[in-house]
Design a protein around this nucleic acid. Structure first.
Lengths: 98, 98
DNA sequence: GGCGCATATGCGCCCGACCGCATATCAAGG
DNA sequence: CCTTGATATGCGGTCGGGCGCATATGCGCC
């Protein structure tokens, strides 16, 4: 169960959640793009991506001077389902609070 | 998005997650039962349940000297889906790490 | 090699989450 | 009313997460 807690903790942070929402398009995105879009400092964004990588949510690839992040393609099914549900919730239009 | 972060934060704690797993049977459970089953102190368990209540995950009902907690019956659909996915993951038999 | 852009990381700080302990509150029963 | 069992809460302490700043590292280019 520890895995799930770590996984959920990784999701439970605004910047990381927002980053995942961007990665949710299935494409690759460099740190510089994410930090710009999310208004985060460089070190902050780098660390957050590192945290997402640590729990296996994202993968990275070096491409020249950039590091391209993407969602882990073969994410475990149970994790995938959680992520799907969370992304669906985040993408939702505003309603009254739950 | 803040709501979702609070919601996920509530899930991202071992004792709370374990408590939800117990409540997952759909029934009502008092604090004394939860604290015993989870090996948590009284104040600790009370506070954790309070935290779950604060984000709308559980509802409570006073029954004589006990307070019976249960999953919020009319949980918002998006929240419900996340909870379902998480519970399914937690309930899963052990496999290789995600 | 030197420069510049992109990224990672060491370091120290701060703040909030979580805890235990003690105490308050509440309900039932004698 | 007093006690007893169940639950909530005020308080202080600890610990870890997240941050900025500075610096290191990686990479391409000239």
């Amino acid at each position: 169960m520890e895995d799930q807690v770590a996984f959920l903790s990784a999701l439970a942070e605004p910047t990381r959640l927002a980053a995942l929402r961007i990665l949710w398009d299935g494409g690759e995105h460099c740190v510089c793009e994410l930090m710009t879009k999310l208004g985060a400092s460089q070190s902050r964004m780098s660390r957050h991506m590192s945290a997402l990588k640590a729990v296996g949510l994202v993968a990275d690839r070096r491409d020249a001077q950039w590091v391209r992040y993407r969602l882990t393609p073969d994410l475990a099914p149970s994790a995938r389902e959680i992520l799907d549900a969370v992304m669906a919730a985040v993408a939702e239009p505003k309603r009254r609070a739950a």
